[in-house]
């Protein structure tokens, strides 16, 4: 459905610019949860912006259902890590969720229904009239997820969405993401630097290499559904996959560190 073919991205000009992404090729299938995991600073956010149509590739093509992406498409909704800046503090929770539903495309009654359903599925019905800044971090990120759902995208792109949250809240929201996928049948692309998370919620893991990044390795996660924070993580195959991801990231981090020390290499 969403396809990247030979995508590279260079910031700045040909000679002095920085190559952030090189020769990226992968495809996201309908209904999948795909996580993108890689060492810190490898260019994960660049990949996400390329997939979202927020950034144009320097070469290669990003297509959705065969159409090239030239601007953010209606099929994709984004959830950012920084929920406090991504939600609008002058709008109430329900208004934030409703805001992307353009009155030209979505009737008022339809919009109201979508907002109610989205808030219900993230468990925030009671807080529809609150302001985002009155809620905890985890609840704010739920609002952002509800906003994504209400938009009814085919793909929900999430950029390290739980990076700023504590471990318990993070675990709750990981389970919420998988519930959302089952309930709304949405495809999820989830960028993270958390290794356990990348395996736990995924059908497929894309492990990225050091900068300029590329797909280092691809893992299919065969853990049975529904996943459970305790039993799934006790499964020997979870430990095995987690080990593979960890090893790859450690190697990439070391590679990046040695390049940083000795840039001539």
């Amino acid at each position: 459905m969403l396809k990247l073919e030979g995508v590279s991205k260079r910031y700045g000009d040909e000679n002095t610019g920085v190559l952030a992404v090189r020769d990226l090729t992968f495809e996201i299938g309908e209904g999948e949860v795909v996580t993108v995991v890689g060492p810190s600073g490898c260019g994960k956010t660049t990949i996400l912006k390329l997939m979202a149509g927020l950034l144009a590739p320097s070469s290669g093509a990003v297509t959705i259902d065969g159409r090239p992406l030239v601007k953010p498409p209606l099929e994709i909704a984004l959830v950012f890590q920084d929920y406090s800046a991504s939600l609008y503090p002058w709008m109430r929770v329900a208004e934030n969720v409703r805001f992307p539903l353009d009155p030209k495309r979505v009737s008022s009654a339809e919009a109201t229904g979508r907002v109610e359903r989205a808030l219900e599925s993230v468990g925030l019905t009671r807080f529809a009239d609150s302001y985002p800044w009155q809620l905890s971090g985890g609840m704010q990120q739920r609002v952002a997820i509800a906003r994504g759902i209400a938009y009814q995208p085919k793909i929900l792109l999430m950029d390290e969405p739980f990076g700023a949250l504590d471990a318990q809240t993070r675990a709750e929201l990981e389970d919420l993401v998988m519930r959302v996928r089952d309930e709304f049948g949405v495809t999820i692309v989830f960028v993270t630097h958390d290794i356990d998370e990348s395996v736990y919620i995924a059908d497929r893991v894309l492990i990225m290499g050091p900068r300029p990044t590329y797909v280092e390795q691809e893992l299919v996660v065969g853990l049975p559904h529904p996943r459970d924070q305790i039993t799934s993580k006790e499964d020997p195959s979870f430990a095995h996959l987690r080990g593979i991801v960890y090893r790859s990231i450690r190697e990439s981090t070391q590679a990046m560190a040695s390049v940083a020390k000795d840039p001539e290499r």
Binding site: A52, G53, L54, K71, P72, P73, L74, I76, A77, L78, F80, D82, A85, S86, Y88, W90, M91, F99, P100, D102, K104, Y151
Partner: peptide
Amino acid sequence: LPLQLDTARSFQISRHRVIFRVLLPSAL
């Protein structure tokens, strides 16, 4: 905030709505 604009852009929010519901309240 750039992210407030990126968010609006990612949801394809029309220019008119961005001005009145994002830019102006933010600049208020």
